[in-house]
Write a protein that binds this DNA or RNA. Structure first.
Lengths: 193, 193
DNA sequence: CGAATAATCAACGTTTTGTCCATTTATGTT
DNA sequence: AACATAAATGGACAAAACGTTGATTATTCG
């Protein structure tokens, strides 16, 4: 996203700013991190910071969007003829491989709105895989959908906070079985009104 | 919590500071709100602010804790011999009655960690009601527990963001049926390992 | 190489912050 | 009603961070 057309110098600047910012984020809350501090750590002039980002929050948003893009790209690489559990497992693998950043952005301390975006991205793919496209629409199951999405956020958070001690395949199986359970629950019940 | 032993002046100061802060929070993010701004709006001297709170975040935390206390007190008032759906309905009623604050603290924009605390408080009571105390322990169902808690956060968020157009009783029924569904799912499946 | 672009540097006024202390005002008690 | 106590105010302070400026230096890309 923000790397294609950039000058080498720009790439370097953005890279070290992100690194320093992430390093600081591991230690304290974003509200306690000043732009001055980030620049000093990265050894980048403050004027240069403002040339790329408006503030810490803007920088964070861009880091988040990059992770989202990467997960999306990762999903697209996966063979379409794979089952839901295997697909979910791939994602857990990816999170584990990128544990440093993911622990920051996806665990308890991270921004929940962003976390939901990640889940929606993944979940929609999984749902498409399970249902082959239809059977269940978001419309008649909006609340169950919301429940599942945020439920998954909670599971991933717990997993990351526990330093991923359960295997990705264990997690994948669990998430999918919960999802399937909720879907069948939805089908068996008369539509609520 | 912070009202019992306080002088009238202190009560007033805290009250207007909270009011102004909440008013500002409805318009912009906490990171964009300065202490100066809060004090000017509340017509309270900045020195006085520092006598009570260390910063905006401290003030927010105290407002959150108060809401939590109030919900807890509300729960305690409820007759013990009530079923789970009715109990959940009471909570949705309460949220609706306090919509202004709840929309701020419990909807999308609010702090997720706090929202989970609210759900845990309510959910543990409901679980106790459903199971009569045992049958299901947190231990063998930690992830399902995490899933349900955060799932409920998502449902409440969605409900608040939609301006509570569904009735509390509708919401209560849904939440409980989802919860029961997950519990039975947990029982019917061989324990994952 | 040379034009273009990026980063640096120093400087600037502005705003917010957090903490003084002396003074005024309100409160709860006797 | 008067008093001692506690709280809020106002002014002032240095320190820090902010955001922008324009001139200068360095690097990159074609």
């Amino acid at each position: 996203m923000s790397s294609g057309k950039d000058d080498r110098r720009v790439k370097y600047t953005k890279m070290v700013l992100k690194e320093s910012f992430i390093k600081l984020l591991e230690k304290k809350d974003i509200s306690q991190i000043s732009i001055k501090e980030i620049c000093e750590d990265a050894d980048i002039n403050r004027t240069t910071f403002y040339a790329h980002y408006s503030d810490q929050y803007d920088l964070l948003r861009k880091i988040e969007n990059e992770l989202l893009d990467n997960i999306g790209a990762h999903l697209d690489q996966i063979d379409g003829n794979i089952n839901a559990v295997a697909l979910a497992e791939k994602i857990f693998d990816y999170l584990k491989e990128n544990a440093e950043l993911c622990k920051l952005l996806l665990s308890e301390r991270g921004d929940f709105t962003f976390q939901k975006r990640v889940m929606v991205l993944v979940y929609d793919k999984i749902i498409a895989e399970i249902t082959g496209g239809n059977t269940i629409t978001k419309e008649d199951a909006e609340y169950v959908y919301a429940f599942t999405i945020t439920g998954c956020v909670g599971i991933v958070q717990k997993w990351l906070d526990e330093d991923m001690k359960k295997s990705p395949s264990y997690m994948a199986e669990m998430v999918i079985s919960l999802t399937l359970g909720l879907i069948s629950l939805l089908k068996s019940t008369r539509p609520l009104r």
